[in-house]
Nucleic acid binder design. Structure first.
Length: 635
DNA sequence: AAGGCAAATGTTTTT
DNA sequence: CATTTGCCTT
């Protein structure tokens, strides 16, 4: 069997048929970071103003076209100036990629599609080879993947597609839910099996999920049910700020472990990666082991990419992407000016950057100092690669980070950061030591580099340790956990404010909420923070609309002491529930806050300095504050 | 060309 | 806030 992502399989195909699709044998994959660099360079060459034409936007646009299967040649140039400019960039970018022998993620799929379109005999081979195809998460396939699949299926091979339109959360990168509908039309003799009985979650959790997703129009329509019983209520915790939220989650996890449950059966899910920092800090403090998926991936880290660039240069000095990346890292006196000269020479002589350097040295095309520096770099690379092909992979990696001066550079970098980078480099060496491809005797550098390119997966060292799982909602799709926390259930964060203006985006956020809720098997906690720091300044958000959509008979609001109260109403009864015994304040007292001004104390929760106090302010309405951090004073 | 400092800028989600 | 950019001096 071939098992893998569309990208992974495409890569495998292109490796086997590089000749047919016009790629060099050792083509390199551009990750989005490399891609952005290249787009930037292309745009500079076109002398486009970076302010007026943000390179990120161009990158985005190009990828969007490729996801639709459109090359620059396919796109009609209209009078639109915006489009015309993007198209120019696209053309130049395509040319640069071809020249460099590199392909980006979208190109991987597009080339694989073209391989089959233009080479019927290759297609026939694979149609014969694969009698059955199973596609999971079918709602996340894009136009190119769908076309590719149709070709593969032909009229012989049987395709089973498994998908859920309510879990389509990758529209922003070109995924087409419509593929689910097209499937019945485009493939031979299909029939549909609807799976509505859910064997994962309790009835209460499903009710919550159904209530949230029901608000979406244009669904294919389904309603999950289970016969496994109501289970526990969905819990909602209103935190004062993100630290309070994290502390609460850590607290519940502590209890969970105390009750004899496994940590790796619990997950904390969030909308954006930035939220993980605070959660990590709280878990660290509570001494709860955790593991983060996603975020900055190991092989995408600056220091790792630099080390890999040296390795690639040792293999092939004409690798321009790698060359450009590390020619002046660590700093060796080859600045912007000199690099420009090298690039221009390369362009003029139709040579690689390495070739241009050789030429410039021979023709004295550089000022003395620059010439020495460049010559120094060339001989460094030559020395490093000399005889390195007889070394073991791990020794090659050691050479790359030691002799290049990379490791010393990061050793000198002060603070936690430098330390982490050195550790990462050491981890890279270790990874080389452990690398063992499927049926290879002796692992080689090219194999390692290939594996790294796509499978940028970050296996953290202690994989077997029992640890709480942290990840974004996107990475959680397809997984399940007995205990789930959805953190940051706030307007502007989830649904994210970026998704509010464009049509259709809110629906996608809603599906994301549906995905999140349905990850939970037994117990689901929703948490939100009334106040959260974003970019260093505080912002106040109301509870997410998705929470408000959950019917109150499956939702209970939980408080610090784990007491259950009805959603915030400050009736007379509530006022007498707690006396501000040791807080130094009393109910109804007039107080002053440095930011909110004067207000009246309405309620207390908890005791001592960690107590939460509800204050009705004259200016800004009711706020819930933690006593020891709120700096309240009596008036 | 390098390194230091101040100012500006940005963050959704991923192969 | 944290990182990147721009501007300055050496």
């Amino acid at each position: 069997m071939w098992v893998g992502t569309f990208h992974g399989l495409a890569h495998r195909l292109l490796k086997a048929h590089w000749r047919d699709v016009g790629l060099p044998e050792n083509f390199q994959i551009l990750d989005s970071d490399d891609q952005l660099r290249l787009v930037k360079r292309v745009m500079r060459a076109l002398e486009l103003d970076e302010q007026r034409w943000p390179p990120r936007q161009a990158q985005w646009w190009i990828n969007a076209q490729k996801d639709e299967g459109l090359r620059s040649a396919h796109i009609q140039e209209s009078g639109d100036g915006q489009l015309a400019t993007m198209l120019r960039v696209y053309r130049e970018y395509e040319a640069s990629c071809d020249r460099l022998g590199v392909i980006d993620f979208a190109e991987l799929l597009l080339r694989a599609l073209e391989l089959w379109r233009h080479h019927p005999q290759v297609l026939a081979h694979y149609q014969e080879r694969f009698q059955h195809v199973l596609v999971d998460e079918f709602q996340d396939t894009n136009a190119v993947q769908y076309a590719w699949l149709r070709l593969l299926a032909g009229s012989v091979c049987r395709v089973t597609a498994v998908g859920d339109d309510d879990q389509s959360i990758y529209g922003w990168r070109g995924a087409k839910v419509e593929n689910i509908l097209s499937y019945g039309r485009d493939f031979e003799a299909t029939h549909t099996v609807r799976l509505e009985q859910n064997y994962r979650s309790t009835s209460n959790i499903l009710k919550a999920a159904n209530a949230v997703i029901e608000k979406n129009p244009d669904r294919l329509g389904k309603k999950l049910w289970t016969d496994s019983g109501d289970g526990e209520m969905v819990a909602l915790y209103a935190a004062f700020n993100e630290h309070d939220e994290a502390r609460y989650i850590a607290d519940r996890l502590h209890q969970w472990v105390h009750d004899g449950q496994r940590r790796d059966e619990a997950a904390i899910l969030y909308r954006s990666n930035a939220q993980s920092r605070v959660l990590e800090a709280a878990l660290l403090q509570a001494e709860i082991p955790y593991r983060i998926y996603g975020g900055q991936r190991f092989y995408e880290r600056l220091e790792i990419k630099n080390a890999l660039a040296y390795l690639r240069l040792m293999l092939n000095v004409d690798d321009d992407t790698a060359f450009e990346r590390v020619i002046n890292i660590p700093a060796r006196g080859i600045g912007e000016r000199t690099q420009d000269t090298i690039r221009q020479t390369a362009r003029g002589s139709n040579a690689t950057l390495w070739g241009a350097c050789v030429e410039l040295i021979a023709t004295n095309g550089l000022p003395g100092r620059a010439k020495n520096a460049v010559a120094g770099f060339l001989s460094l690379i030559e020395d490093m690669s000399l005889g390195s092909d007889t070394l073991k992979l791990i020794e090659q990696a050691e050479t790359a980070i030691e002799r290049s001066g990379l490791i010393d550079l990061y050793r000198r970098e002060k603070g936690e950061r430098g330390l982490a980078r050195v550790e990462n480099l050491e981890e890279l060496v270790a990874a080389c030591g452990n690398f063992q491809p499927e049926h290879a005797e002796q692992p080689t550098l090219p194999q390692f580099l290939d594996q790294v390119a796509l499978d940028a997966g970050d296996r953290q060292a202690d994989e077997d340790q029992d640890a709480v799982q942290l990840m974004t909602l996107h990475s959680a799709k397809g997984l399940e956990f007995p205990l789930v926390f959805l953190a940051g259930m706030e307007e502007n964060l989830f649904p994210h404010k970026m998704s509010l203006d464009e049509p259709g985006r809110l629906e996608e956020e809603r599906r994301l909420a549906y995905v999140g809720i349905t990850r939970a098997m037994q117990k689901l906690y929703l948490t939100f923070a009334e106040c959260r720091s974003i970019y260093g300044s505080e912002s106040y958000n109301s509870v997410s609309r998705f929470v408000r959509d959950i019917p109150s008979d499956v939702l209970e609001e939980v408080r610090l002491q784990n007491t259950i109260t009805r959603p915030t109403s400050y009736a007379a009864g509530a006022l007498s529930s707690d006396l501000g015994d040791d807080t130094g304040f009393a109910l109804g007292q007039l107080v002053c806050h440095p930011m909110y001004g004067e207000g009246v104390i309405l309620n207390f929760e908890g005791h001592g300095p960690r107590a939460r106090v509800h204050v009705q302010f004259e200016e800004v309405g009711t706020k819930i504050l933690i006593l020891d951090s709120a700096r309240l004073s009596a008036v």
